[in-house]
Nucleic acid binder design. Structure first.
Lengths: 153, 153
DNA sequence: TGCATTCAGTTGACTAGGAAATTATATCCG
DNA sequence: CGGATATAATTTCCTAGTCAACTGAATGCA
């Protein structure tokens, strides 16, 4: 039975700290959205639809970084809450379109305000310069690795 | 039917960029671990046990930020892979302890090397100064909001 | 002592996502 | 034209969490 060899500490990784902070910010946001009975994924889909033409599920899947199967079910939930509508495409018998209902559209600004508030809550006591630096570094990392897609999970 | 009022852009939020980058880093790590047939949660549990005394599931739950139910199931999977052992506590008839098997213990350094490599892959083309800044900002955010617990999700 | 309460862990019901199979429609081309 | 192939969405099955109910053991106090 050999003694364990030393391995790098978890906290040595930037990825570790990134995940801690990101998870906390997201969970705090989820808690705020819960007051409106909306999940982060639901908010995200609604935000993509907001102010745009009715959109194919496949396009939403692409923009949100989810599978089409996930979009089908997410849409089902939002339809059940009367926040979006699904309609068959006139042009293509296979295609569907998703669009916000009036109720859904009216809700988005309120949810956006929660997003603003959540961001402020975590980042407002960084200095302006620090916030700018953080944003610059994150965007540069995102660009380098060709990260796209609205992140959900 | 009213026109949608302008709402803040998604990409205006630091939380958005944080989540994008964090998700990508985590997914890349998950892909590396998959080669060893281990998930991020499994790695995380093994890393907590590594080099320590057998530990109660409830303690792991606390350190990892998961429920006890989640630990029960996560432990079941690791036991099925012969990476950890579950034993009844001698002192307390309700209690169990979890510990790495020799096989599990031997695997940890290899997984830690994957973690090192993953972190390097994403962050090594930031300058040293930039990495230090990012680490400082993330740690300061974590501290301010009393974030603890190994993040999994 | 003995019964209520607390505590550790597990389990069942549920949520939410992915991968792959499935269904229905559209397109391409011989 | 009509069959092969491609495409859009959905569905099925699987994984992995949560919450809350449950089981059995320990504790506490009348």
């Amino acid at each position: 039975m050999s003694l364990p060899q030393p391995v790098s500490d978890l906290t040595a990784h930037l990825g570790f700290w990134l995940r801690i902070v990101s998870n906390h910010v997201s969970q705090a946001f989820a808690a705020k959205l819960a007051a409106r009975e909306v999940t982060v994924a639901e908010w995200s889909l609604m935000r993509v639809l907001y102010g745009r033409e009715p959109m194919a599920p496949s396009r939403l899947a692409e923009e949100m970084g989810l599978t089409r199967g996930a979009i089908t079910r997410l849409a089902d939930r939002l339809i059940a809450k009367s926040l979006i509508l699904r309609e068959a495409s006139a042009a293509d018998g296979r295609a569907q379109t998703l669009a916000l209902t009036d109720r859904g559209s009216a809700l988005v600004p309120h949810l956006a305000a929660l997003a603003d508030r959540n961001d402020a809550e975590f980042f407002d006591d960084l200095s302006l310069a620090e916030r700018e630096t953080l944003e610059r570094l994150l965007k540069s990392l995102a660009q380098r690795s060709h990260m796209s897609a609205t992140p959900i999970a």
